[in-house]
Design a protein around this nucleic acid. Structure first.
Lengths: 155, 155
DNA sequence: TTTACTGCAAATATTTTGCAATATC
DNA sequence: GATATTGCAAAATATTTGCAGTAAA
């Protein structure tokens, strides 16, 4: 398992190679955005990054953030989500094998989980025909807590 | 397996009960929207419904469509998706067990698939702690076609 | 008759785009 | 020095909201 600092270096290297391969420029804004994203534990939207960088007294325009998240999506360092809210949510994706989400339809809480059986089933399915890069699973249901409340106060 | 006509009747009944339980009105617009949605095979956005109803010479405002898709989401007759595009995609969800999507990251095509092993693995995981209502799986990778093109024209 | 619902238009929110200024290579 | 990239502001797009008119109950 890689340490957090090492992950920062690794993704920086991946992004650098991606940019060089395409003759794109290695601007400080790009790496500031990447580093900030990789400092965030969970999900975020564009405005979050914008404000977090502002708090560091580092101003990057929203347009630039949008532009660069596009690049990071393309080189698989970031993934997009939709949980049902209004803003588009993103998440760092390097070295974070967890892409299973359980969403409670009663209280709306979201919880990540791992499961090797699910992982294996998905990989088995796709080895035959296609190459699988990643996957995201959203499971909707009622969580423990809400289940208990239901049984305590039935209709 | 239910026939298509019967599905229309069933979802109409479910929606009717949902509305009656909440003392909401059974307007023709609501059922026109529901019926149109259940006539669509794959995914759609709000504008698609709007235009399809227009083609039938049935005018319903976008605001009303948004409003009612909200209700249909709430009573689980419709689900929301995000494939990476700009508009929110929806899909009918009653009696359509297929919620597995394979998305090719090269050409962008999306293909649905079924897999009982995956289904079972997901159900096993969640029977222990929570009640699972539904799930959606997005698998990202390279499809057959794009894989062949890659091997024909290597870098 | 009551009031929930619809349609319209305006408001909001989000993302994209055009262009001049800037900074990487 | 050439030009990709940034920042700003305007534009485009998607969704929500307020309110008057309409119609379901």
């Amino acid at each position: 398992m890689e340490s957090s600092g090492s992950t920062q270096n690794t993704v920086k290297k991946i992004f650098t190679e991606y940019l060089e391969k395409r003759s794109m420029r290695k601007t400080p804004e790009r790496f500031a955005i990447l580093e900030k994203i990789y400092s965030i534990k969970g999900h975020f939207d564009v405005d979050t990054i914008y404000n977090m960088l502002l708090e560091d007294n580092y101003h990057v325009s929203r347009a630039t953030i949008y532009n660069n998240i596009g690049l990071l999506l393309d080189c698989k360092l970031v993934i997009r989500h939709q949980f049902g809210g209004n803003t588009t949510q993103y998440e760092k994706s390097y070295n974070s094998g967890i892409h299973n989400h359980f969403i409670c339809t009663k209280c709306g809480t979201m919880k990540e989980f791992t499961d090797t059986n699910i992982k294996r089933a998905i990989q088995n399915k796709h080895l035959k025909d296609s190459t699988i890069e990643s996957y995201t699973l959203y499971v909707y249901g009622t969580c423990d807590k809400c289940k208990q409340q239901e049984s305590n106060a039935p209709k």
